[in-house]
């Protein structure tokens, strides 16, 4: 590793203007401009405050869990840390190689063969040509596709697609690992193996940021927890402390047990 990994988020806010329907149209803007209401229109644009005034400082060794209900801003925060959404207010500094496991099927194409998908992923990650054979070998071995590797993904069984997607996503070792909770899907036998590989990766990463609804996983992997609610930080501290407060606050509906 070249330098120590670092994530520093200062006073960060992200607002999503709602571009739905007519508010997005050029016509409305032209009409508004013609009638001298453009500025006003801009001010009155409906925005969603996805994240408000977030401050996070993470260094090598930190394992941060993000908890909160749906729509609390967990995934948005991960996207901000990954550099996808740039700060609307505040600043973000990230140092170190980064892998964000946000979309299980990132760049995966059903018409391509497993092997071609692996190579494509290598290209997406800007790997040098020399690293590709190793990547291919690793993914093929883990996903257990054997003869299917040279057939189009379209004819794979659902389980095989999950295995390939997982193997691809976890094939590249980062200093900073950002993880959304989708990876906990898949069949049981594969799960055990997947878990081992994932734990391996988590251990290897300098910084982990994990977003999950499964408090046990957070408790197991994270040393620190950030509790988000409606885009604001409700609590930030040692995992057990925050998780206890968090679980205490959730009403125990059967529906919640499912998520």
């Amino acid at each position: 590793m070249t330098s120590r990994a670092l994530i520093e988020v200062k006073n960060l806010s992200v607002l999503f203007p709602l571009y739905h329907g007519s508010s997005r149209s050029l016509k409305k803007m032209v009409v508004a401009a013609a009638s001298g209401r453009l500025a006003q229109d801009q001010q009155q644009r409906v925005v969603v405050r996805a994240l408000t005034d977030i401050n996070v400082h993470l260094e090598s060794g930190d394992r941060l869990g993000l908890v909160g209900s749906n729509g609390a801003g967990k995934t948005t925060l991960l996207r901000v840390l990954a550099g996808i959404y740039e700060p609307v207010l505040g600043s973000l500094r990230v140092r170190g190689s980064l892998n964000a496991l946000l979309d299980p099927n990132l760049g995966m194409n059903m018409e391509l063969t497993g092997r071609e998908n692996i190579l494509l992923r290598g290209l997406y990650n800007g790997l040098p040509r020399s690293a590709l054979p190793r990547l291919e070998e690793d993914v093929a071995e883990f996903a257990e596709l054997s003869d299917f590797l040279d057939l189009p993904v379209r004819i794979y069984s659902a389980g095989m697609v999950v295995r390939l997607g997982f193997a691809l996503a976890t094939a590249i070792k980062p200093q900073i690992l950002l993880m959304d909770e989708w990876f906990l899907a898949g069949d049981a036998v594969f799960m055990e193996k997947a878990r081992m590989r994932l734990e391996e990766m988590v251990r290897g990463a300098d910084i982990l940021v994990l977003s999950s609804h499964q408090n046990e996983i957070v408790r197991q992997w994270c040393s620190r927890v950030l509790w988000l609610d409606q885009g604001k930080v409700l609590a930030d501290g040692p995992a057990d402390e925050v998780l206890n407060r968090y679980t205490g606050s959730i009403p125990h509906h059967p529906a919640d047990a499912l998520v």
Partner: peptide, 19 residues
């Protein structure tokens, strides 16, 4: 179990500000 994952992501540095 030894790590099968040996491919390392290329390092980068990101410093984004709103203003």
């Amino acid at each position: 179990m030894s790590s099968a994952v040996t491919t390392i992501a290329p390092p980068k540095e990101l410093h984004l500000r709103a203003d």
